[in-house]
Design a protein around this nucleic acid. Sequence first.
DNA 1: CATGAATGAGAGTTCATTCAT
DNA 2: GATGAATGAACTCTCATTCAT
Lengths: 198, 198, 198, 198
Amino acid sequence: MCAKIASSRKESLLAAAKVLFGMHGYAETTFKKIAQEAGVALGLLTHYFGTKERLFLAAGLDVLHDLIRTEEAALAQAQTGLEAVRIFAETYFAFATDPDRHFLILIRCSPFSDLKGMAEREVMERDFHKLYLLLEEALAKGVADGSIRPVDPLRTSRVIFCNLVGGVRHHLLTPYATATLLNDLVDFVINGIAAPTP
Amino acid sequence: MCAKIASSRKESLLAAAKVLFGMHGYAETTFKKIAQEAGVALGLLTHYFGTKERLFLAAGLDVLHDLIRTEEAALAQAQTGLEAVRIFAETYFAFATDPDRHFLILIRCSPFSDLKGMAEREVMERDFHKLYLLLEEALAKGVADGSIRPVDPLRTSRVIFCNLVGGVRHHLLTPYATATLLNDLVDFVINGIAAPTP
Amino acid sequence: MCAKIASSRKESLLAAAKVLFGMHGYAETTFKKIAQEAGVALGLLTHYFGTKERLFLAAGLDVLHDLIRTEEAALAQAQTGLEAVRIFAETYFAFATDPDRHFLILIRCSPFSDLKGMAEREVMERDFHKLYLLLEEALAKGVADGSIRPVDPLRTSRVIFCNLVGGVRHHLLTPYATATLLNDLVDFVINGIAAPTP
Amino acid sequence: MCAKIASSRKESLLAAAKVLFGMHGYAETTFKKIAQEAGVALGLLTHYFGTKERLFLAAGLDVLHDLIRTEEAALAQAQTGLEAVRIFAETYFAFATDPDRHFLILIRCSPFSDLKGMAEREVMERDFHKLYLLLEEALAKGVADGSIRPVDPLRTSRVIFCNLVGGVRHHLLTPYATATLLNDLVDFVINGIAAPTP
DNA sequence: CATGAATGAGAGTTCATTCAT
DNA sequence: GATGAATGAACTCTCATTCAT
């Protein structure tokens, strides 16, 4: 029980960090606010996470790993490579738009974030790279099974990721997203890579 | 002469703000650093721009207006709608990757930025919207002149902008961009909307 | 056995405290560092010693009592009063420069230390006074046995202690000590008090 | 007048720092206490002195330079080398026991202090060395003019400084100083080096 | 217009001490 | 006895903003 209590305090802090960093960003989120939101003492933040930056990274990595696991589970259902790409994109958007997944924190500390000076940025970059690999594999598989045009998997994975990243940022941050934007992007991507039907 | 000196001081501050905000972000950039970079007195910042946020916005809007003017000039050369879309995308990327244009500041204060609490965010959103309109007009023109498939200009403009935004962030912020990414994106977009050739 | 374990834990803490307080001073030394250095649980510090100040004092007194016992044992060998004074000074310097004796902690919590606010300072002052008495007795003995000029034992003991304290601080803390300083001081003191040889 | 006001704020802080660092030591003295004692805003401490350590050093060096100037002025009156040594010692003690000179701060940040980790310790050590040189010169002069026994000036200067340092610490920090201690030390030193009178 | 000294609230972080287990 | 998670006051230092000159 001791372990459980300790664990729950740490988890409360991590959860509060995800919410507040996600909603208000790094600079606007203070230790005080996080501790109050989590309902625990201020000092526990340093106790468990060391520094603000490390907490930020921990919160982001937690969501990132969740996303990777979710993608892997979803991709297991795909029959063809083209189907895998569609599933990847749809799962990505579903995850990003589910408030309970706290994708916003990831927007703020991913390699796409504005935060440049972040120490241990490499950890985030390395783990984020795993997502690209999943997409690359799906593309290679589709080229092999004939469901996808003979494209370069590496270059095409980057092009597709631009669609995903742009879509999520439009949807979550701007007033410019149309109601169908995320669906339109999936269609745009699939049409762009699908093998021609004879 | 007196007015000229004052004006050059104000411009020095704005230029320094673009550089520093762009390189180090909002929170990391202080009045002191800006004043030192510009080589003028600290108090002039408040004198000319009021608050830090207003300076940030002024710097961002300056770049945004520059971008809009640049797009308008480039689009004047386009014959067909499809050509206009290509020019729009290429000009956007060329602007974003030209260090002298200080696009980075725009990344940090555009509606795609992580900064939510920004007052006067609407001003930025309103002016940014003009870019969307330019792209929408190009699409509508292309549909009309037959160079572009019969797509919905509004929805398609958002899809294309996702490609532009994702491309710029990949290129400027992450280690994942391939050497051909920006060209690949232009091709991907053009192929996705071009009218079929008989 | 249980008592032995407890005792060894307490002793580990005291030893670690001597080392760390001696090397880095009172403020720089934390409970965490001491517990880690000793390899025992953090809570045992309060358990055994109450407060940080009490631990500091305990560590200092331990070294002080060691010094007093060492002086007493050494003085037992002296034939004349003058010889006793010489032995006292030499023993003092030998003790202070032996790393295993942890004299540094004594420098930091003796009445010569900069630490003014120390509660229970009187305990330290009272026990430190015993050293002065040993030196006073040696001087009185020397005056009585004719080996020392007819000086006032009290006043002269203070003068001699100034030499000892100054010597130790030069040697341990500053870059100004010459290689022969401690020997020079013994000679200077002995020459200053020795009875003239006819 | 602008310069005068600014200067007086800075001087108030330095004066308050001397008093409080001297009375309560480095760790116990906080920015808040210094600013309150000086009657100025907290932020001015960083504004003028950068960090706490730099302020500490500035306060100590200010007193040290005052001491050096005082010694130099006093030594100008000396006829013989022996007289110069006596004047040096008497001036040192007079300075150290004058509350208006704030010698206590020097005790806490001189190379004889317990503070080891102090950055820029070398500055203090270098300037402190000038005192040793003054004493060495006096000794060399005395040896040359026959007022002092043929001693080694370097080694003897260190021995004498041990007397001064030990004397000041006894007087200022401990309850062991006799009423005549500082005079006794001057006599002890002079007797120890004076050339024998025929 | 121009300057930079002055302000003080608030930030992240440290740490002795407590106490439930 | 032994543990280390938990607490929160206090610390140093930052910085946008003000304002007298």
